[in-house]
């Protein structure tokens, strides 16, 4: 039970958000704070690790322990922190360029590893902070400042990729639906393992194609009961839906051992709780004589 009733504004800092008015990041920020308020966490109870981008700038706006790392490298910092202190609640926030481009390798391996952290990606199909270049999820053919004649590559489908790479919780939300997103974030946090939430986030300044109204016309909710999220093949089908209809909700979920559950050294207690007082390696040294 929550210790005290929390309001999402309890997690504000002295810094006012610097996003463009109307940016989808506001919705994600609100949904996150609401989810945490619902859970009743104290600011010192949890760590948020951020990548670099407009998304990562949230590091200044959330009252909690924060680690604003390098572009693309938020995941390994979060995983290292979790392996050091598995009792800590950890959420990771990043962008599509950050997490699917620069840090794509970490994303794939985090899915395999299934460390118990929550990963929320602000997928605005563009590089916001660096002013509108192509991102790995920009639609083919769309002109951007770095691809004025249109993007040649196919976009990455982050949801399908997450299912394929062994994700145990793969969800998609929409920054324009904070209430649904708030619930998705709570479900992701509750999931024992690596929980990936791809959030469709309009960038009002640099992406004039995937706008709020563009998304509004397309997104629909997967209804629990009607859609079973435990079937991988069905999940692929859903994940591949993009265009006229875009699914939101939990696309795929399975329960698998988390990475830290299978590290025998972590069975008893976290590394942080191990005392440094009594270390004595003389038994091992003797083997060298």
């Amino acid at each position: 039970m929550p210790k005290t009733q929390k309001d999402f504004n309890d997690y504000n800092t002295e810094v006012k958000p610097t996003w463009c008015p109307g940016c989808g990041d506001f919705g994600i920020w609100t949904a996150l704070r609401m989810a945490i308020a619902d859970l009743g966490w104290e600011p010192h109870d949890f760590l948020v690790v951020y990548g670099i981008g407009c998304s990562g700038n949230m590091a200044n706006f959330v009252k909690s322990y924060g680690f604003h790392g390098l572009h693309g490298r938020a995941l390994p910092v979060a995983i290292g922190a979790k392996l050091a202190n598995q009792d800590l609640k950890i959420i990771v926030l990043g962008g599509d360029g950050d997490g699917y481009g620069e840090g794509g390798n970490h994303f794939i391996h985090a899915l395999r590893g299934n460390v118990d952290i929550t990963y929320i990606v602000h997928d605005n199909q563009v590089y916001g902070l660096t002013k509108g270049q192509m991102s790995p999820t920009t639609e083919q053919g769309q002109p951007t400042s770095s691809t004025p004649e249109g993007v040649i590559e196919q976009p990455i489908n982050p949801v399908a990729l997450a299912v394929a790479a062994g994700g145990t919780f793969v969800a998609q939300g929409f920054a324009g639906d904070t209430l649904q997103l708030r619930e998705l974030i709570k479900q992701a946090i509750a999931h024992p393992g690596f929980a990936h939430v791809n959030v469709l986030q309009p960038c009002v300044t640099f992406n004039h194609h995937n706008t709020f109204s563009w998304f509004m016309k397309r997104v629909y909710k997967l209804e629990p009961g009607k859609y079973e999220s435990g079937n991988k093949l069905k999940a692929f089908e859903k994940a591949l839906e993009w265009g006229e209809k875009i699914p939101t909700g939990i696309i795929y979920q399975e329960i698998r051992h988390t990475y830290e559950q299978d590290v025998s050294e972590l069975k008893k207690q976290s590394l942080l709780r191990q005392a440094l007082k009594k270390i004595d390696i003389s038994k091992t040294l003797a083997k060298f004589s």
Binding site: I79, G80, A81, A84, L276
Partner: peptide, 22 residues
């Protein structure tokens, strides 16, 4: 931890150190 690459390795070590372990 055998990391996926050295970038991950150093960032993993930083994360663990930040959380408080050597």
């Amino acid at each position: 931890k055998h990391a996926e690459d050295e970038i991950a390795a150093v960032n993993l070590a930083i994360g663990a150190a930040f959380a408080g372990v050597r």
